[in-house]
């Protein structure tokens, strides 16, 4: 078992390992194994194709939290220039689970806000596994208000299991922090583009997710509750996460069908971590194109369009 591969990726891991070994052997002994390597590479391609063309929602959920998946701070230098990180909410502290700052997108100044997970154990703890506390949301709020003051469009990257459910977070008003952001983002007089790059975990994700466009990376998820959480409440057993993932309709594809998001940004076969630059280019193209449209609008029209978009969320019958 390779820890950097998910269960369903193990056949891929094995083939890759074999190819690596053969390459090693052939370079050592000047044996010509090219044909064999070629054969294995074809097989690998087919295998990957087969696995990734029919992913279940549960498998997508796992990919969305893949240990090698690129995080906000990795995308930022690939998409933007001159990133200047800004810290703190000016009220309590600096939450490392949310990062933010100004940068330029092809020369166009923007405000970036994103959730940030950690790669190694120390970093994971420092970033609180990407679960923001109220001070994180209030830092985001401060940056949004600043963006409005300097007429900078806001670009957000969503990647969180959810807002942190801890004692201190409750004491400092986690609910209020999230709610305030929702209300302010709904009326912020600059364009807001939100992109889910990994996990879109419930209210903790939405708190930086209200705006004019919502994009999702192909293998990201966006859900009202985690599959595990849903399973333990409705099925009374976290083992039913796979069924819950299916029921919740949390994949980009399903959410686009339901018109709850605007665009899917394609990932390379095997997921974003197998070609972060390729994904970054597509993110950049998508955001640039959307900003062109949104920045051409009068502020009043922009806000009216955003308001109507928010009002359109819902599915009900009139009797």
């Amino acid at each position: 078992m390779n820890a950097n591969y998910l269960d369903f990726e193990q056949p891929i891991a094995e083939l890759e390992e074999k190819i690596r070994e053969l390459r090693h052997v052939s370079s050592d002994n000047s044996l010509n194994l090219d044909e064999e390597i070629q054969r294995l590479e074809d097989k690998l391609r087919h295998r990957t194709e087969a696995i990734f063309s029919a992913l279940s929602p549960w498998q997508v959920s796992q990919l969305a939290r893949h240990p090698n998946r690129p995080y906000t701070l990795e995308y930022i230098p690939m998409v933007f220039e001159r990133f200047q990180e800004l810290h703190g909410d000016r009220l309590f502290g600096d939450d490392k689970a949310i990062v933010g700052g100004m940068a330029a997108l092809d020369g166009r100044p923007v405000m970036i806000i994103g959730q940030q997970k950690g790669r190694d154990t120390r970093e994971k703890v420092r970033r609180n596994f990407g679960m923001p506390r109220p001070e994180g949301y209030r830092k985001a709020l401060r940056l949004m208000n600043m963006a409005a003051r300097f007429r900078l469009p806001v670009v957000t990257f969503i990647d969180t299991p959810g807002a942190y459910p801890g004692v201190g977070a409750e004491e400092r008003g986690q609910s209020e922090a999230i709610a305030r952001n929702l209300a302010v983002m709904a009326r912020l007089p600059v364009p807001i583009i939100c992109t889910v790059i990994g996990e879109g975990g419930s209210g903790g994700a939405l708190a930086i997710g209200v705006g004019d466009r919502t994009n999702m990376l192909q293998y990201s998820t966006y859900s009202v509750i985690s599959p595990e959480g849903c399973a333990s409440i409705l099925w009374k057993s976290p083992e039913k996460a796979e069924v819950a993932a299916d029921a919740l309709g949390l994949t980009a594809e399903r959410l686009l069908e339901l018109k709850l998001i605007d665009k899917i940004i394609r990932e390379p076969r095997g997921g974003a971590h197998r070609g972060p630059h390729e994904v970054a280019v597509r993110i950049k193209e998508t955001i640039s194109a959307q900003l062109d449209k949104l920045e051409a609008m009068e502020t009043g029209d922009l806000l009216e369009q955003r308001y109507r978009r928010l009002m359109a969320y819902g599915d009900f019958e009139l009797v």
């Binding site: 709610a179 929702l182 209300a183 983002m185 709904a186 009326r187 419930s202 209210g203 939405l206 997710g209 209200v210 966006y222 859900s223 009202v224 509750i225 849903c230 409440i233 409705l234 919740l248 309709g249 949390l250 959410l255 339901l258 709850l260 955003r306 308001y307 928010l310 009002m311 969320y313 819902g314 599915d315």
Partner: peptide
């Protein structure tokens, strides 16, 4: 939960 992301978006809608 049973209305999935539709429910989550009601938070944004009502706050707006």
């Amino acid at each position: 939960m049973q209305e999935g992301l539709f429910s989550l978006m009601q938070m944004a809608k009502t706050s707006a």
